[in-house]
């Protein structure tokens, strides 16, 4: 009896030739991505080759897909693994393979989950400075700050995705109406190198600012105006992630080996105060020894002139999946190969 088309397709997807094709394709894409890295930088190369469904070749104004990208191959490999798993013989003999493949599925799923859920930002701290929000080095936002109340600001942040759409922005929460005429962002080495936005505000009090239209640039103080009797400031800034705590840098220390420039250690002494608590506690963050608080992890990432410490803040709810996946695959491989080894010993 001949199988139906979906059945045949499912069989093809779960077949060993598909596995081999996917593995070869992945090897090719990873090689291409690595070779492109000196030219494009790691971030762009990964976007072009790995995080994409297709790899395109530019042909004039058209982009022609010439190869499947890492995401497509990964997806196919995941389906292949699932299909093969369902068909795989359920016996002790194959227990090792079962565990390996389960672990691989979990590894793929985990990487996918963390690419969606993971957030990463930076704290750039001068000695003595306290911050309670971290800035993202890859994204910017348009911030409208209500500065009327001298003791606390009210911040409305507009994401990059909305800015890129251009046009009128008037969500109900926003106290003024904004129109974005132009938005540009330039990246260099995985970080924002510059950004500009041409923004018009409709309800500006004519006495406070002329025209109500500004060309805002990243790193500049922005525009101030009055609207509806309230004082506002509008600026383009790195996307801020509020933290449930505040961090104060006490001291950044960089040590080298005596008589050399070889860095020996970088460390930052900080004070952590969690929101709603009055007690501060000191902590030491150093290379290879991060600090974990409230689901956030703080890493020593770099430094700058004048004792400035740069900390990386990561929030990744899916952080444990790769650990679990790898433990499973390692266990499975051990089981499978040890069993084969003992079999071939017995045969010899």
């Amino acid at each position: 009896m001949k199988d139906s088309l979906p059945r045949r397709l499912w069989k093809l997807i779960g077949s060993l030739p598909t596995t081999l094709a996917c593995l070869c394709g992945l090897a090719l894409v990873v090689t291409l991505c690595t070779l492109a890295q000196p030219r494009l930088g790691i971030y762009r190369a990964v976007q072009v080759y790995i995080d994409s469904l297709f790899i395109y070749a530019p042909a004039g104004p058209l982009k022609i897909p010439i190869l499947p990208g890492g995401a497509l191959i990964g997806l196919l490999l995941l389906l292949n693994l699932l299909a093969a798993q369902i068909r795989l013989e359920r016996s002790w003999r194959k227990a090792g393979l079962w565990i390996i493949h389960l672990g691989l599925i979990l590894l793929f799923a985990g990487e996918f989950a963390s690419s969606l859920l993971r957030r990463e930002a930076q704290l750039v701290l001068r000695p003595g400075q306290t911050l309670s929000a971290a800035q993202d080095s890859q994204h910017v936002e348009l911030a409208l700050i209500d500065e009327t109340n001298p003791s606390s600001d009210r911040v409305y942040a507009i994401s990059e995705a909305l800015l890129q759409r251009h046009g009128e922005l008037s969500p109900p929460a926003l106290p003024v109406r904004l129109r974005v005429h132009q938005f540009d962002k330039a990246m260099q080495d995985d970080a924002v190198a510059g950004a500009q936005a041409d923004v018009e505000v409709s309800d500006v009090d004519p006495l406070s600012a002329s025209g109500g239209r500004w060309l805002l640039s990243l790193g500049q103080p922005g525009a101030r105006f009055l609207a509806d009797g309230r004082r506002y400031r509008l600026l383009l800034r790195p996307r801020m992630t509020p933290l449930p705590l505040s961090v104060t840098l006490e001291r950044f220390k960089r040590q080298t080996y005596p008589g050399t420039d070889i860095p020996r250690s970088f460390s930052s002494r900080v004070l952590i105060r969690e929101n709603g608590r009055s007690l501060e506690r000191p902590a030491l963050i150093s290379m290879n020894d991060p600090l974990r608080v409230d689901g956030f992890t703080f890493y020593q990432s770099g430094y700058d002139q004048g004792g400035v410490s740069i900390l990386q803040v990561v929030d990744n709810p899916a952080w444990s999946l790769p650990y679990l996946a790898c433990a499973l695959v390692s266990l499975g491989m051990l089981l499978h190969f040890l069993r084969r080894l003992s079999l071939s010993r017995a045969a010899a």
């Binding site: 290379m287 952080w319 650990y323 790898c326």
Partner: peptide, 26 residues
Amino acid sequence: VLSFVGTVLGGIWADHSWGRFWGWDP
């Protein structure tokens, strides 16, 4: 086996020290 386990351990080191499991570094 050794390459896989070693690569994964490298990922865990990177996650532990720099906050990312995998970075597509050459």
